[in-house]
Write a protein that binds this DNA or RNA. Sequence first.
DNA 1: CTAATTGTATTATTTTACTAATACACTTTA
DNA 2: TAAAGTGTATTAGTAAAATAATACAATTAG
Lengths: 124, 124
Amino acid sequence: MIRFSIDSSSSVPVFQQVIQAIKLEILSGRLQNGDQLPPIRELAKILKLNPNTVAKAYYTLEEEGFIESKRGSGNWVNTKNMKLDSFRRGMLEDEFRLFLDRALMLGAGLEDIKNLMERYAANE
Amino acid sequence: MIRFSIDSSSSVPVFQQVIQAIKLEILSGRLQNGDQLPPIRELAKILKLNPNTVAKAYYTLEEEGFIESKRGSGNWVNTKNMKLDSFRRGMLEDEFRLFLDRALMLGAGLEDIKNLMERYAANE
DNA sequence: CTAATTGTATTATTTTACTAATACACTTTA
DNA sequence: TAAAGTGTATTAGTAAAATAATACAATTAG
């Protein structure tokens, strides 16, 4: 496990890098529902981070419904909760609609947005 | 003039609020090419901000080509030799970037957004 | 030409976000 | 039930961003 590393020279905070990496593991299917994550201290050791930094990442992931934490026990991937999944989807759609409104107000069309996205896709 | 106010309890920095507000004034047409902006000190007094905060906003607006500053003279809206197109594109890009950040935090990838957009395109 | 008005530059202070150190509390397991 | 392993809470340190204080420089108005 743990197929990612930390870029300490990046401007994006370390705990967010951890969050993004784990989300990617889950979304890609490399981490599946019920899989156990490494204990905070262990992951911290592997990534050479302070345990609190990993704890913050785990805490956020739990807040967002990606994992479940049990004191004294561990952390598990949680994708079973479809209600939360559709909640996320709903939020995404809300955000997109807001963005679309603003974009249309700016005189942009879907084509313009598509182009913009192509550029971002290329740069990532 | 100055149809906006500052939310000091907001987490978005004051100088950015000023920037956004002025961009909106310009975009909406309430401020037009050649219109003079209030002097730094005056706007600072109205909004109850430090002059430097307003100066930072004005400076950024000039960097981005929205206004023109002349030492000892004042600040003017400048949309003339800027293609209105690129003007809008700039704002569109800002909005898109914000949306993208939120989307990524929700666990969505560029693919998901693409799909979302396809659906919207179909419904138009 | 001078004083008032304007933007600019430099430096200091405050605030915020991030990370770290340490101690606490719950579970598991032997 | 004790010890080891786990997440949690509290507090402190650090760095970066935002804001403020002050002085400087150019333009304009009279």
